[in-house]
Design a protein around this nucleic acid. Structure first.
Lengths: 131, 131
DNA sequence: AGGCCACTTTACGTTAACGTAAACTTCCCC
DNA sequence: GGGGAAGTTTACGTTAACGTAAAGTGGCCT
């Protein structure tokens, strides 16, 4: 069995646990561009990938506009130097942001370690005063 | 010179590059609890730490409510077992979330690598067709 | 033919996280 | 004692990212 090459809106909604409203909204925002059969939307594997990217972006706190940028980073539009340069800059910015997030996550993880220790200690003290 | 032990609102605003409106809003949401001198707010080092945590949370896409949870993870309120248990659960949830974010970041970084390669390749081809 | 999905469009509603403006007090400076 | 500068309260405005409801279309089943 090879990969599917088209998807219905409900199908994608179920797979990624979002509503169809959400998927249509992303299209409104220019993030997805399904073709149509009659008036029904048909999604390509590329659309599915884009959706995946959007949701991953959301988990990292990216706005839809930012995820839109990311999607466009993949579409090598017959670009001129100007645009390719700007693109490389954007890539660099995103890299910087991701590195900052890595740092933030590390600190938070350490904070959680501390919080856990304290909670466990508090529990222990409750036990001991307990009879 | 030892650490300052109180801060003005403008001072914090400058340090973290947010507006005073934002800081007051966080207080409204119960995330900061400055004392007052007259009607002027005085922030403690703990408030400053909390603010730092909130902003770190924002960079990771946390809502203010979530950051509020995180702040409270540090305040070992004279808790009972119930609450300590719930607290330990929350810590675990956050850990899971942070791990997912780590995965997401890795994938994005790889995606950026690919995008960069393509852009550089496109540039190269422009050069070659250039004379 | 009737009924039930899954799909569609249109449009108004909602929440979070502040922005922005207005009107006021306090303190300090010259 | 007039005027900034920095603080305050109150309140309405704004944007992003959908939710929710209403009303219609198309296919398929029995």
């Amino acid at each position: 069995m090879t990969l599917k090459q088209s998807y219905g809106i409900g199908e994608l909604a179920r797979e990624f646990d979002v509503t169809t409203r959400t998927i249509r909204f992303y299209e409104d925002q220019g993030l997805l561009t399904p073709r149509r059969r009659g008036q029904t939307r048909i999604y390509s594997p590329a659309d599915r990938i884009a959706l995946k990217l959007i949701l991953r972006g959301k988990r990292l706190g990216f706005s839809l506009a930012e995820s839109g940028d990311l999607i466009r980073l993949y579409q090598p539009t017959g670009d001129n130097r100007q645009q390719l340069g700007a693109l490389l800059e954007k890539i660099d910015e995103k890299r910087t942001q991701l590195r900052q997030q890595l740092v933030d996550i590390e600190i938070m993880q350490q904070d959680l370690d501390v919080a856990e220790e304290r909670a466990k200690q508090a529990l222990k003290e409750l036990e001991e005063s307990d009879v």
